[in-house]
């Protein structure tokens, strides 16, 4: 299975000392879904704009319909970069989530602090066979979610996190 390359992204380079976290990247399903949605919506916009401009202003103006196409190409690349940046690691005592290209964020949640683990899957996600895992701690600011996982992996992760959370439960 192809996964996003867990290439070094700068921040963690310095942290790499003894216990190296084993990073897991997201499966390609999420990237496929996002790119498909991008192509569908911007494709519709391009077609609609092209027809409308060609009909109202003349065929020359219809060239402006290429703008959404450029946006699509840019978005295609951006989605890829963003998808590659997402990764998570289950360590012995905490979960690491790292994400973002321009605005990087790395979150560490000790298992003992997890209050609730959710697996969610919307209609579109379900169609693509994807599910998200969301972690909640007592702090509202904790923003730990992993999108676009394989449902089986999401459930495995949920069960493992819940189990570890119970074993190390610490509360407030």
């Amino acid at each position: 299975m192809e996964t996003g390359s867990p290439k070094d992204t700068g921040i963690t380079r310095d942290a790499r000392t003894g216990d190296e976290p084993v990073w897991t990247a997201l499966p390609p399903g999420l990237l496929r879904m996002r790119r498909l949605l991008l192509v569908v919506w911007l494709g519709l916009l391009t077609a609609g704009l092209g027809v409308l401009l060609g009909w109202l202003a003349g065929p020359g103006w219809a060239a402006f319909a290429a703008l959404p196409l450029a946006l699509m190409a840019w978005g295609w690349v951006m989605l890829g970069r963003n998808w590659r940046s997402w990764r998570y690691a289950e360590r012995a005592d905490d979960l690491l989530i790292s994400r973002g290209v321009l605005w990087r964020e790395e979150t560490v949640v000790p298992y003992g602090r997890m209050q609730l683990v959710e697996v969610t899957s919307g209609p579109v996600e379900r169609h693509f066979g994807l599910a998200s895992v969301q972690l909640h701690t007592a702090a509202a600011a904790t923003d730990a979610a992993i999108p676009g996982l394989d449902p089986a992996e999401a459930e495995r992760l949920r069960d493992r996190l819940t189990e570890l959370g119970e074993a190390r439960s610490a509360g407030l």
Binding site: T107, V109, A139, L172
Partner: peptide, 21 residues
């Protein structure tokens, strides 16, 4: 330390230019 629920590191593009986080 006992009251920490989670730890996060963030770095924006401008902060990365100056190697701070």
């Amino acid at each position: 330390h006992a009251k920490v629920q989670s730890v996060r590191l963030t770095q924006g593009p401008w902060e990365r230019c100056w190697n701070v986080a």
